[in-house]
Amino acid sequence: MFGRDIGIDLGTANVLIHIKGQGIVLDEPAVVAIEKDSKQVMAVGEEAFRMVGRTPGNIVAIRPMKDGVIADFDHTEAMLKHFLTKVNAKSMISKPRILICCPTNITSVEQKAIIEAAEKSGSKNVFIEEEPKVAAIGAGMDIFQPSGNMVVDIGGGTTDIAVLSMGSIVTASSIKIAGDQFDHEILNYIKKQYKLLIGERTAEMVKKEVATVAPGGRENDMDIRGRDMVSGLPRTITISSGEIYESLTESVSHIVQAAKNVLERTPPELSADIIDRGVIITGGGALLHGMDGLLTEELKVPVITAEEPMHCVANGTGILLENLDRISKKKVKI
């Protein structure tokens, strides 16, 4: 088989790979487990994620992406190589073309780092596209018409908000508050309130099962286990949705404010379109209970959660790959 086109959603929390003609072929956590002394990679993705918080002292599970950008270049490259080998991207006669997504406000240096990592992992041509634009396309928006579309993409490391028209971003904002921050708020709340230490995975479970951002929107309880900070022994506590609501209020208010700021900078004609069409939320954060209702209330426009919000960016890369030859792309020269 000759060159294949590959779309990569290189997220802070997860990496998704879309191969043209096949759809999404990989969806794994962006985690690398390394041996401390030799710096040797022990495991990548799902296997490494299972090790988070459960490894002996000489093995550490790290996330090479932070806030949507590369925090650890070598391990990002190793992770990409591993995933591309896993989906058989290298068994082709010619190297694949890769379309990769990044947050809206990253610097040209950070863009170059992403492209370099993709090229070193075995690509012929690397194209970069902004995440909210790709998320909007993947959510089914027709952003190539002369009308306003607004998307709020709440990922792991960043929340990207954009108003799009004629295939381009009109106004946008990217803030470093998203799913990871919610996990930290939950973790810190339980630490402060109950003097109990829990791991990131437990915090994430609480976010999915119990958390809500709508007052009184959910009345779930959950037993969680951790280590008592006073006795040092394991302990179980029960937490409720109401408590978690309190702990997330501040973080969520930053996302609401960022969305308001984008709307305030939007030309009036496009604002009128957004009132008619509504706002679409994508990314893992879109699944946080009550998020659509809260944004609807605060922004005074209808807010809808996309179908399969976590797959929107990867699906969007697939649609753009179909038109890769036709649509002019930003290719960053190194």
Rank of each mutant, 00 (worst) to 15 (best):
M42S: 10
V44E: 06
V44L: 02
G45V: 04
E46G: 14
E46Q: 12
E46Y: 14
E47L: 05
E47I: 15
E47S: 11
A48G: 03
F49W: 05
M51C: 07
V52Y: 04
G53D: 11
R54L: 11
T55K: 01
P56V: 01
P56A: 01
P56K: 03
G57N: 02
G57A: 02
N58R: 10
N58I: 06
N58A: 05
V60C: 07
V60F: 03
V60H: 07
V60W: 01
I62W: 00
I62A: 00
P64S: 12
P64V: 03
P64T: 04
K66H: 15
K66Q: 15
K66I: 05
G68Y: 11
G68R: 12
G68H: 11
V69N: 07
V69L: 13
V69T: 02
V69Q: 06
A71R: 12
A71L: 12
A71V: 12
D72I: 14
F73L: 09
D74F: 04
D74C: 00
D74S: 08
D74N: 12
D74M: 12
D74A: 15
D74Q: 11
H75E: 15
T76A: 15
T76S: 15
E77P: 13
E77G: 04
E77A: 12
A78F: 04
M79D: 04
M79C: 07
L80P: 01
L80W: 09
L80S: 03
K81P: 09
K81E: 06
K81D: 11
K81I: 08
H82T: 01
H82G: 00
F83C: 04
F83L: 09
F83E: 09
T85K: 09
T85H: 12
T85L: 15
T85Y: 09
K86Y: 07
K86G: 11
V87Y: 07
V87N: 04
V87C: 11
V87S: 13
N88R: 11
N88L: 08
N88T: 13
N88S: 11
K90W: 09
K90N: 14
S91D: 14
S91F: 11
S91R: 08
M92T: 14
P96I: 13
P96N: 03
P96C: 12
R97Y: 05
I98Q: 01
I98R: 03
I98F: 10
I98K: 02
L99R: 02
L99W: 07
L99S: 08
I100V: 01
C101L: 08
